Simulated assay, not measured.
Amino acid sequence: FAIKKVEPMGIKKEEFLEYLSSAESLSSHPIAKAIVAYNPIFDSKQIKEYSEVPGCGVNCIYRGHVVKVGKASYCNYDDKGEVGIKTFMSIDGKCVGYIELEDQLKSTSKDCINGLKQLGISTYIVSGDKKENAERIGANLGVDHVEAGLKPEQKVEFLHSLIDKDEGTLAFVGDGINDAPSIVLADVGIAMGGLGSDVAVENADCVIMNDDPDKVVTLVKIAHKTRNRAAFNIIVSLFVKLAVMVCSVISSFMGTWNVPLFVSVLADSGLAMAMILSSLLLGYSKIEKS
């Protein structure tokens, strides 16, 4: 995110940014990090009783005043359906302004969506952002479906509806505390490790440490290769063991020859070692980029 516009109301811009940055300084949300990077000037010793309200925003006491930062309704402001990504702030119950941000998509975001489509995977944006903003981003990326304006519990309900359809494995990629319940619910929960909150990372099955969206495609390809190699190992093992067993049964009935002991050992321990080696070689295989 990048700061596009700062709009204080009844308060000096410098004071507005100081209170705003102080409230957001303890949050791991990408918007919070963008705000603090834009204005790092505040007194951290004055921050008290900080807390986050999932789906709404954050609040704290700064210089003796109750500060809330988040959605318009959370900060006692009627945005009248205005378009744009905005974060509002109230001090002692009165809205004192907002900042407008622009969502800067990562350069590999579109590559990620295209790569998933090539693998036959349906893509969704499940966001708490306004519908207009989410649909605009979805259109730019070429996402199949967009669900916007959802609180954390509504995201969970939507995921339940997808699970009930039973159309395949459900993966959810998120980074904030609001995404943690959805990450837990999904068949595969994926967290962005760099920007992600501790709650999201701790509950995820996989963590992408460099926050590169295209790594999701790599993750899927690794999963497919692992599944195929496991199936190959099982089929080969069963075939070899069955072949040795049939030969042993035939030889016992014919009575003309016996299966050597070393063949049985190779079919057991030797085959196990071969399958382990086959699995280890998977780590040296190359994954084609999307």
Rank of each mutant, 00 (worst) to 15 (best):
V184H: 07
E135R: 09
D78I: 09
M9D: 12
K94E: 11
K4N: 14
G176H: 10
Y74M: 00
V156T: 10
S237G: 05
H224F: 07
M192K: 00
K151W: 06
I11L: 07
I250C: 06
D211H: 14
V217C: 02
Y98C: 13
A191Q: 06
I91N: 03
S107Q: 12
T218K: 10
Y62I: 14
V156H: 02
V184M: 09
S90R: 00
I41F: 05
I47R: 00
P152E: 04
L159C: 09
I183T: 07
L20D: 06
K80I: 05
I35R: 01
D175Y: 06
G149E: 10
I222A: 02
F1R: 03
N228K: 04
P40D: 11
T87N: 13
G176W: 12
I287Y: 01
D79G: 03
M245P: 07
G149C: 08
D211Y: 15
G128Y: 04
I91E: 03
N140E: 15
L119W: 00
C247Y: 00
A180L: 08
N178Q: 02
G128V: 06
C206G: 02
N258K: 07
E82Q: 13
V236M: 05
E82W: 11
N233W: 05
A139V: 12
R229G: 13
M275Q: 14
K5W: 05
I276S: 13
S51D: 07
C60W: 06
I177N: 08
T169H: 00
G255L: 09
F172Q: 11
S44M: 03
I113L: 07
S248K: 01
V263Q: 03
L17Y: 04
A148F: 05
